[in-house]
């Protein structure tokens, strides 16, 4: 996904004179030639996140379309006040693309983890949050949004889906299958695991890549006795408000397969972490069975 993104950026910088790209010391290996060709519009600013957001806001103010690339926790947490005042409040369009989704840097410790990204961004009204599940979907969603004038955050994962890659549209859920016993919300890179579990079962599966704004309308059509399983590669409960709002006035029972809301104090590989926190097919299956049975 990262490679696809950098290729798209190179194309954007070459062909669109009002676009700019800044990386905070990561990823330039892929676009060194563009960096040399367009040093004013495509540059590595170094390890400098918070100020960079304000600089990007200034550029957006002058009619440019800035895109910033960096590591997720530093892009969404270190910079929170800049996001709030310089981007959201002033309604300035800046694209922010973060690598290091959740535990994608599994060995580097808490400073490099960011399972809370969606929760943080949802706290600032006016921001958009997109979590593509594949390189193709990243391109589709980026192309649909990068000039829309809003602060838009993209979470780029190093562990995309391999078997399920539907076309996606910004702000819209994809109905993967329809059923009556429960509704399963598969978020981003969790689609493969969800489909493996749900195939042949009498449950609805909705696939979400735009997480803010959340497509409440589509979810609202699949109440299924209020039994909802959300499978999200972020902090549990990040979508709870949106889910309950989708069924306003009706009771819902929400189960979730997600990262627990705690400080992650362990290390190890990506697979070990997903296993440890229960983001597995086995756990999805278990939670779904309980939900349907009760």
């Amino acid at each position: 996904m990262r490679r696809a993104f950098l290729k798209r950026v190179a194309e954007m910088i070459r062909n669109e004179a009002d676009t700019t790209f800044f990386t905070v010391d990561i990823g330039m290996w892929a676009i060194r030639d563009v960096l040399k060709e367009f040093p004013d519009r495509c540059t590595n600013v170094g390890i400098y996140e918070d100020g960079m957001f304000s600089i990007a806001a200034g550029m957006a103010r002058r009619g440019l379309v800035p895109t910033i690339f960096g590591i997720q926790p530093y892009l969404v947490e270190r910079t929170l006040e800049q996001i709030k005042m310089d981007l959201a409040y002033q309604k300035l369009g800046v694209n922010v693309i973060g690598t290091g989704a959740a535990v994608d840097y599994p060995k580097y410790g808490y400073s490099h983890y960011c399972a809370e990204d969606l929760h943080v961004i949802k706290a600032i009204p006016g921001c958009e949050f997109i979590a593509p599940g594949s390189a193709k979907q990243f391109i589709q969603l980026f192309n649909q949004t990068y000039r829309n004038g809003h602060p838009t955050f993209f979470r780029v994962s190093d562990h995309p889906n391999q078997n399920n890659d539907p076309d996606v549209e910004f702000g819209k859920a994809v109905v993967m299958q329809k059923g009556s016993k429960a509704t399963v919300i598969a978020v981003s890179i969790m689609l493969d695991a969800v489909m493996e579990v749900c195939k042949g079962k009498d449950v609805t599966v909705l696939y979400y890549t735009t997480l803010e704004p959340f497509d409440r309308e589509t979810l609202g059509q699949y109440y299924n006795n209020g039994k909802i399983l959300v499978v999200e590669p972020e902090f549990e409960g990040s979508l709870t408000f949106d889910i309950t709002k989708s069924f306003e006035g009706k009771p819902v029972q929400i189960e979730s397969v997600a990262f627990p809301r705690e400080i992650f104090r362990n290390y190890g590989t990506y697979e070990e972490k997903m296993q440890y926190y229960g983001l597995t097919k086995e756990n999805i299956e278990k939670k779904l069975e309980v939900l349907i049975r009760v």
């Binding site: 580097y108 410790g109 400073s111 104090r265 362990n266 290390y267 190890g268 590989t269 070990e272 972490k273």
Partner: peptide
């Protein structure tokens, strides 16, 4: 270094 439940994280960690 850096293994699951390691007491030796790659980045300095005063808790461990």
């Amino acid at each position: 270094l850096n293994n699951p439940n390691s007491l030796l994280p790659g980045h300095c960690d005063r808790n461990k």
